[in-house]
Amino acid sequence: MVQRMQAKSPAEQETAVRLEFEEYYREKAPWDNGVTPPELVALVEREPAGRALELGCGTGTNAVYLAEHGWEVVGVDLIERAIEQARAKADAAGVSAQLLLGDATRLVELAVGDGFSLVFDLSCFCAIPAHRRDGYAAGVTRATAPGANLLMFGYGPDALPDKIFGVTADELRTRFSDWDLVDVTPGTNPFPTFWFTLRRR
Rank of each mutant, 00 (worst) to 15 (best):
V2A: 01
V2Q: 00
Q3K: 06
A7Q: 15
K8S: 14
A11C: 03
V17Q: 07
V17W: 01
R18Y: 04
E20V: 07
E20H: 14
F21Y: 15
E22G: 03
Y24E: 14
A29W: 06
P30R: 08
W31F: 07
D32G: 10
D32T: 08
N33H: 13
G34D: 13
P38Q: 09
P38E: 12
E39I: 13
L40S: 09
A42M: 13
L43G: 04
L43D: 02
P48C: 02
R51G: 02
L53C: 13
E54R: 07
C57D: 09
T59M: 10
G60M: 15
V64F: 08
Y65C: 10
E68V: 07
E68Q: 10
H69K: 11
H69N: 12
D77E: 11
I79A: 02
R81K: 15
I83K: 01
Q85G: 11
A90H: 03
D91K: 14
A93C: 11
L99Y: 11
L101Y: 05
D103W: 03
E109C: 03
E109R: 11
V112E: 06
G113A: 08
F120L: 07
D121H: 05
S123M: 03
F125N: 00
F125T: 00
F125A: 02
C126H: 14
C126N: 08
C126W: 02
A127I: 01
D134A: 11
Y136E: 00
G139I: 05
V140Y: 06
V140W: 09
T141P: 03
R142Y: 04
T144K: 06
A148I: 14
G154I: 06
Y155W: 06
D158I: 02
D162L: 00
K163M: 03
F165G: 00
F165A: 01
G166A: 04
V167Y: 02
V167D: 00
A169R: 07
S177I: 13
L181N: 06
V182Q: 11
T185F: 11
P186W: 08
T188Y: 00
P190Q: 03
P190W: 10
P190I: 06
P190S: 10
W195T: 14
W195I: 04
F196N: 02
L198M: 08
R199C: 10
R199E: 15
R201W: 13
